[in-house]
Design a binder for these strands. Structure first.
Length: 453
RNA sequence: GGCCCCGUCGUCCAAUGGUUAGGACAUCAGGUUUUCAACCUGGGAACGGGAGUUCGAUUCUCCCCGGGGCUACCA
């Protein structure tokens, strides 16, 4: 019975899609999938100056990366200009709308005279080049029955007779949206809270047209860590930045779902299938939320650790644009327990593919007096080891601790710095094994040489 | 300015007309430990303020304060 629910995601291609937009897309997608309904993708490109094909492509790319698909579209709103013009003419003919040459200054003057809380009311004109305004009633309220917020009443007398079409006949956003939602049979509009104030206008258009009204749900906005509206200045504000930082799409979906919504039993980690099953638009909260990358990192790490090694390696390979060969696979095997993002994996296993990095601080810290002798002993023990698996290596190095009377860290850290250049790496036995005996010995020799200078 | 929305730990999400107000991230302490993580244990941490309703308000109402959105011939 809910078979006919139709949701829509309608971004405007005036810039990169940021995480607020991505969350709106996700919520629509979850709601559509959870109800057996469908999702329409509509591109709100009626602003010809700011809308670019590049931005459209970027939005599609982000949705594909997030693995949020749609059933219809993308439909260009601009391509529906004919339908818009026809509906506009209807309103003009019926007198529900009228031409008015008033300028912004005229509107201001009107308010100075009638009060700031009084909506502008114009005078119909014959000027064919004048903008078109919708006639708004003077009495009563226009009530938005919002799924999340309940009924929200907007007094009509405070609402301007707003412009629905430019002088050249091209229509404006609030008109186009109302017409399109109606003509596309949209039953559920789920969008950002910044549109709540636009909704009475769209309702007024719908009613003037005698069209059916969708159900509305306005999502609380996302804010940056400073409490201000989320913008580019807040670091990873765009989804592309999230992708480039090495986050998994399924982790991003999980995190985004939790930004404004939660389960009653406090479940935090959820597969997308589970999200579809549990998410309900009416359970979304009404307070704005702050994007917190720390929690995303944690969730991402949890998802990464659960990936089978083959899949893990494939993801890392794709991220690094490398072949998922044995070396990468062995690197992934030793990094998986430690990395929280795909980008971090490289930091941990880079030494397998490149010479040790130069980290003076690391040298100063662990390559002090007496280190050379330790490394020489380690080198000899490793050269003599029966095999070169982690267990063999441990068996070869462990006895040195007692022989040389040193603590584990005193021996292992210099080895770590010798083979990786830094003090941070996966487990030392695993790291040596992954590097291989020959290269490990070479690097330790290099370090010994350097210490002898 | 006008219209509208929002207000539970630092952050996200819960619960409730009567509870020690719960979980997660973060944080702090301890444990584990070859580094860093991970992991385990424990701790600190919230109902913006003021009235009212009520036997009793975090919960209901009003006011204030604070934050936000809209207020374009942008979307």
């Amino acid at each position: 019975m809910s078979q006919d629910l139709r949701f829509r995601f309608a971004p405007s291609p005036t810039g990169a899609l940021h995480i607020g937009g991505a969350r709106t897309a996700l919520y629509n997608w979850l709601a559509a999938h959870g109800s057996g309904g469908s999702l329409v993708l509509r591109i709100e490109d009626t602003d010809r100056e700011r809308s670019t094909p590049e931005n459209v492509e970027q939005i599609l790319e982000v949705l594909r990366w997030l693995e949020l698909d749609w059933d219809e579209g993308p439909i260009s709103q601009a391509s529906r200009a004919e339908q818009h013009a026809a509906r506009l003419q209807e309103l003009l003919d019926s007198g529900a709308a009228y031409r008015d040459p008033a300028t912004a200054d005229d509107v201001k003057a009107y308010k100075r005279e009638h009060g700031a809380d009084r909506g502008y009311r114009g005078t119909p004109s014959d000027d064919p080049g004048a903008a078109v305004r919708l006639r708004v009633p003077d009495d009563g309220d226009t009530v938005v029955e919002d799924t999340i917020r309940g009924p929200v009443a907007f007094p009509n007398r405070s609402q301007d007779d707003f412009v629905i079409a430019r002088g050249d006949g091209s229509v404006l956003y609030n008109f186009a949206v109302a017409v399109d939602d109606a003509e596309m049979g949209i039953t559920d509009v789920v969008r950002g809270d910044d549109h709540l104030s636009n909704t009475p206008k769209q309702l007024l258009v719908l009613r003037a047209l005698g069209a059916s009204e969708p159900r509305y749900a306005h999502l609380p906005l996302l804010h940056g860590p400073d409490g201000k509206k989320l913008s580019k200045r807040h670091g990873a504000a765009s989804v592309e930045e999230l992708r480039d930082a090495g986050y998994l799409p399924e982790a991003v979906r999980n995190y985004l779902a939790l930004l404004g919504w939660g389960t009653t039993d406090d479940t935090t980690l959820m597969s997308t299938e589970e999200l579809v099953k549990r998410f309900r638009i009416e359970d979304v909260g009404s307070a704005s939320a702050v994007f917190d990358e720390q929690k995303l990192r944690w969730i991402n790490g949890r998802f990464m650790r659960e990936l089978p090694l083959g899949e893990y390696t494939a993801r890392v390979a794709a991220f690094l644009d490398r072949e998922p060969d044995d070396r990468l696979r062995s690197g992934c095997a030793i990094a998986q327990e430690k990395a929280q993002t795909l980008a971090e994996v490289w930091r941990l296993i880079r030494f397998l593919f490149e010479p040790p990095v130069d980290d003076p601080k690391a040298w100063r810290k662990v390559m002090g007096e007496g280190t050379r002798e330790l490394l020489e002993a380690a080198r000899d023990a490793l050269a003599a080891a029966d095999g070169f698996e982690p267990l063999d290596i441990e068996a070869a190095l462990e006895p040195l601790l007692e022989q040389l009377e040193v603590k584990p860290g005193r021996l292992y850290q210099p080895i770590r710095v010798a083979i990786t250049g830094t003090t941070v790496s996966p487990g030392i036995f695993e790291s040596l094994a992954a590097l291989g005996r020959e290269e490990s010995l070479n690097r330790i020799d290099d370090a010994i040489r350097r210490l002898s200078e």
